[in-house]
Amino acid sequence: MPALTAEALDQLFISARTHNGFAAEPIPEATLRRLYDLMKWGPTSMNCQPARLVFVTTPEGKAKLAPALSPGNLDKTLAAPATVIIATDSLFHEHLPTMFPSYDARPMFAGNAELAAGTAFRNGTLQGAYLIIAARALGLDCGPMSGFDAGKVNAAFFPDGRWQANFLCNVGIGDPARLHPRGPRLSFEEACRIA
């Protein structure tokens, strides 16, 4: 497989930024579907795919989300065309017979709540990262955040307790005028070892 072009790498990583403001341009449902259809191909352990997404796009949905947001995230989230609740399904293993037909892995998770929770959180977080990369690949900008009350989001959107909020991500066409200065990154020597 050939490496991506410098322009593609720039769009996905190098020039991509965490956006705090977006154009008042709605995202069509077809684009949200395409976004999911890209992100779902990212690898997860045993193809478990525990992430569940809620695309909050309506004024009613935003009003439901607002009480859970930290003050610094309230205005930008209410103004964003879409806010994705990236959640995990605590019973993701119910789908394993279809998603991972190599052998029946369902009992391994059904009988071990701690293993199931750790697997769901780790792989659901990976899928949230795939969502960001897929959005950038489609020309959208993202503003991921963890400044919210997960308990309030769960109560408002997932009252049965099966899905659990992990993080939120605003999505749309970013407003470059609302960007903060880019923070530095650690060097290879600071962050990596070769063993």
Rank of each mutant, 00 (worst) to 15 (best):
A116K: 08
L65G: 00
A63G: 01
A79C: 05
L38P: 10
S102T: 07
L91Y: 13
S90Y: 14
L74V: 03
C48I: 04
M46T: 02
P50I: 04
G118E: 05
L115S: 06
N73G: 02
G72A: 07
F121H: 10
A113T: 07
D89S: 15
P59G: 07
M39S: 12
D89G: 14
E60L: 05
P97M: 07
V56C: 11
L38E: 05
A110P: 02
G118I: 07
H93V: 09
I86W: 12
P101V: 03
P107R: 00
G72W: 02
T119M: 05
F121Q: 08
T125K: 00
M99S: 06
I85K: 13
L69N: 01
K62V: 10
T44L: 03
T88I: 15
D37I: 13
G124M: 06
A105R: 04
F100I: 09
P71Q: 11
N73F: 15
L78I: 09
T44Y: 01
V54E: 12
W41S: 08
M39D: 06
N123Y: 02
H95Q: 15
D37P: 14
H93S: 05
L91H: 15
K76H: 13
A51C: 09
M39F: 14
A79S: 06
T125P: 02
E94V: 12
A105P: 11
